[in-house]
Nucleic acid binder design. Structure first.
Length: 193
DNA sequence: CATATGATGGACT
DNA sequence: GTCCATCATATGG
């Protein structure tokens, strides 16, 4: 499998657009001599000052990576779970996309070992997928544009068309009127209908 | 040092 | 649907 990483410019757009366009792309995680390939099936977009649900709004000090130029990971912990985001937008504009669910494409036994679970419970949630892939604080601020990174995003080889469903974001106190959660229609790995 | 918080997950009714 | 364990941070005394 010849993996092609997405260019930096992909991430410099509006975070909602990036959140939509990340659906169906591949999340690559290297683990020892293995390369774990997964398809992104659910994302959420977060903004800065005008988004009361964003950590750039509530705890800006913790969310400092969100001000970086797009194209890096941003990993932080909530309720004893690591969550992985992709920073978006040009430097100085706080924004990121939370990866909420993925569809594993290979190395299932490794994911099952990491999670001590099987089936959809492997990766149908932002904390679950980090546990399955072994993502921790150690993977904060990695360049997802580089194939040399332990984590990067790649273009899928076959791009079957799919529908996108949008909904309100999950698990936050104050959401915006805009629907900023996106997932692949009828995909069985999404965290919640 | 003490305590509060949460972009969750899992167990339970 | 409800309840709560768990822990990295932030914040206050």
């Amino acid at each position: 499998m010849n993996l092609i990483s997405l260019p930096r410019t992909f991430y410099l757009k509006d975070t909602e657009k990036v959140a939509r366009e990340l659906l169906g792309r591949l999340l690559i995680k290297k683990s020892g001599n293995k390369t774990i390939v997964s398809r992104i099936v659910e994302t959420e977009a977060y903004y800065g000052e005008k988004d009361p649900a964003s950590r750039a709004f509530t705890t800006p000090k913790m969310a400092e990576p969100m001000w970086n130029e797009g194209g890096n990971t941003f990993v932080y912990m909530v309720h004893n779970n690591w969550l992985v985001n992709i920073v978006t937008a040009p430097r100085g504009i706080p924004a990121a996309v939370l990866i909420r669910a993925i569809e594993p494409m290979n190395n299932l036994p490794l994911l099952e070992k990491n999670r001590n679970k099987t089936g959809f419970l492997l990766t149908n949630g932002p904390g679950k997928l980090c546990q399955a892939l072994g993502i921790t604080k150690r993977h904060n601020l990695l360049d997802v544009c580089s194939k040399n990174s332990e984590i990067f995003i790649a273009e899928p080889e076959d791009n079957e068309p799919f529908g996108i469903v949008s909904s309100h974001r999950i698990g936050i106190k104050r959401d915006l009127k805009r629907k900023l959660r996106f997932y692949i229609k009828d995909n069985r790995w999404v965290s919640k209908r």
